[in-house]
């Protein structure tokens, strides 16, 4: 029971290790060259699964910003380069500004004429701060980039492997490793 629980807790690692071992077995033990290539593909898929599962965060979404966050960032960037460098300072200033507005709203409660005006101001401010980007809301983009390139390398290696297999079949009339070795040994 304890073992099952430990498997369930880290099922992503178990799946990746099992897949990887299937691929490794096919690479080592299979006699057919195409089956070896299939094993190599399974091995690569296991690595991709491993990386992507590490990039997952609970409750996080794909690493693409929502529309309002993107506009928020756009707005920010328009202010100039110096602001980017002092982003943290800017956040602090924003917080302070929000507090001031809150105080201003309290004061406005007494004056009916200005209450609506201040309400809209506070509303816009709420929308502004809710569009702040938090790292825990988005899956890790770095692992996705690494795997995107790993898929590309996978395609390239698979293509070259298939080409070599096809050439070997043309030379030896077989894609069985043992038969090819036999033919080389007997010098045919």
């Amino acid at each position: 029971m304890e073992l099952l629980q430990s498997i369930a807790d880290s099922f992503n690692y178990w799946i990746y290790i099992i897949l990887m071992m299937i691929g490794l077995y096919a690479l080592v033990a299979k006699n057919n060259l195409v089956k070896k290539l299939i094993g190599m593909s399974i091995f690569q898929t296991a690595i991709i699964l491993f990386y992507v599962s590490i990039g997952y965060k609970d409750g996080a979404t794909i690493p693409i910003l929502y529309e309002h966050q993107a506009h928020h960032g756009h707005h920010d960037a328009g202010h100039g380069d110096a602001e980017d460098a002092h982003h943290d300072v800017e956040h602090a200033v924003e917080e302070a500004a929000k507090e001031i507005h809150a105080v201003a709203e309290d004061h406005a409660d007494g004056h009916d004429a200005h209450a609506d005006d201040h309400d809209t101001l506070v509303d816009s401010h709420d929308a502004h701060t809710s569009s702040a980007i938090h790292a825990e809301d988005f899956a890790n983009p770095l692992v996705h980039v690494l795997m995107l390139t790993a898929i590309v390398v996978g395609v390239a290696t698979l293509g070259v492997g298939l080409a070599i297999t096809q050439k070997l079949y043309g030379e030896f009339g077989s894609i069985e490793e043992s038969e090819i070795i036999e033919q080389i040994r007997t010098g045919k």
Binding site: A70, G73, H74, P141, L142
Partner: peptide
């Protein structure tokens, strides 16, 4: 993997530094 400075920088600063929504 997710807690290091680099990965968090990519998430929070990409939009300010490049204006691209898709961090990947």
């Amino acid at each position: 993997a997710s807690d290091n400075r680099l990965s968090q920088h990519y998430i929070t600063e990409t939009i300010n530094e490049t204006r691209v929504s898709n961090m990947v």
